[in-house]
Computed example of a mutant assay.
Amino acid sequence: MSATTASTITAESLWDDVAAVRANAPLVHSITNFVAMNYNANVLLALGASPVMAHAHEEVAEMAGIAQALVLNIGTLEPDWIVSMQLALKKANARGIPVVLDPVGAGATAYRNRALAELMAAGRLTAIRGNASEIMSVSGLSASTRGVDSSASSDAALAAARNLAAATGAVVCVSGADDHVVDHQGRWLSLSNGHPWMTKVTGVGCSASAMIGAFAAVQPDPWRATAAAMAYLGVVGESAAEQVIGAGGGVGTLQIQLLDGLQLLDRASFIARLKFTVHG
């Protein structure tokens, strides 16, 4: 299938990708961090995908051999996990399945930066999703970071995202108040849904990367797949936050409401709420 032209993206077409995930239940192999592992798995299940969270290097290549997508998240790094990620990446590349990288905390430590460089040299990536500081760091620009939190806006990282897409051939997504999705062909889409409270629930950003893996498993154009995943999470998060705040709840309730929304949001609500702009 040929790549989607930017002008043909519609809310309806992005919903078609949501429906495809629900219909096909793709198996998403995630080598992810301890902090987000449980929530990532629940997000994928609520979305309609099937998660597997194997990380032992004795089995990761075999697991990547049966999955429909691979997601690599460096949040809680250790040497054995770096080996596992490289083994799984090589197997995924050999099979031609999509690989999503979440460079959590890029730029925070020299060890993390070395691990990222080794991982990116080990194989091809389909998509890279991170906050502004992470994307700027991976692209080679200087960016300060506070652990895994961004110190820059997503708009400030747009040029870095484009450079990174050109250098790697991967789709690059910068998450923030507005999410930007760019690729090496010059396509650029921004999404303006979501809610600030989403940043107060551990694992939501990591779950966005896991969702991109699920969408890329059913949508062969990775730029559109990334846009659809981020669009769906943004709409669900915005709706969930409004419901929780309206009922006098807090971020603990939001965590559960996000899962409910991922499972239950309907086509009409998604299309009515979605706010996006195609720039090229």
Rank of each mutant, 00 (worst) to 15 (best):
M1I: 12
S2Y: 13
S2I: 10
A3Y: 14
A6V: 05
T8Y: 10
T8K: 14
A11Q: 08
A11P: 03
E12P: 05
W15M: 02
W15G: 00
D16A: 13
D17A: 13
D17I: 11
A20I: 01
V21F: 03
R22I: 01
R22C: 12
A23Q: 13
V28M: 01
T32V: 00
N33S: 04
V35Y: 10
A36M: 05
N38Y: 00
Y39R: 04
Y39N: 02
N40E: 09
A41N: 08
A46I: 07
A46C: 05
A46P: 03
A49T: 07
A49D: 00
A49Y: 04
P51W: 04
A54W: 08
A54T: 09
E58M: 08
E58V: 02
V60K: 05
V60E: 09
M63I: 15
A67Q: 09
A69M: 14
L72E: 01
E78M: 15
E78K: 10
V83P: 00
A88I: 12
A88Q: 10
K91P: 02
A92P: 06
A92H: 06
N93P: 06
I97Y: 08
P98K: 01
V99Y: 08
V100A: 00
A108L: 08
A108S: 15
A108G: 05
A110N: 12
R112Q: 05
L116N: 11
E118R: 12
A121R: 11
G123R: 07
R124M: 11
A127E: 03
A132E: 08
S133F: 08
S133V: 13
I135N: 08
I135S: 07
M136K: 12
S137G: 09
V138R: 06
L141Q: 14
S144I: 12
S144L: 13
T145H: 02
S151R: 10
S153T: 14
A159I: 14
A160C: 09
A165Y: 06
A165W: 07
A166Q: 15
A166S: 14
A167E: 14
V171E: 05
V171F: 11
C173S: 10
S175R: 04
G176W: 06
A177E: 15
A177H: 13
D178S: 15
D178T: 15
D179P: 04
Q185T: 12
R187H: 15
R187C: 12
L189M: 12
L189W: 05
L191V: 11
G194W: 05
G194L: 07
W197Y: 10
W197G: 01
K200T: 09
V201P: 03
V201R: 10
C206T: 02
S207Y: 01
A208T: 03
M211G: 00
G213C: 07
P222C: 01
W223K: 00
W223M: 00
R224K: 15
A225E: 02
T226Q: 03
T226C: 03
A228I: 02
G234D: 06
V236W: 10
E238G: 13
S239T: 15
S239F: 02
A241I: 07
G246P: 09
G248D: 09
G248R: 12
Q257V: 10
L258N: 13
L258H: 12
D260F: 06
L262W: 11
L264Q: 14
D266M: 06
S269I: 14
A272C: 09
L274W: 03
F276C: 10
T277D: 13
V278K: 09
V278Y: 09
H279F: 11
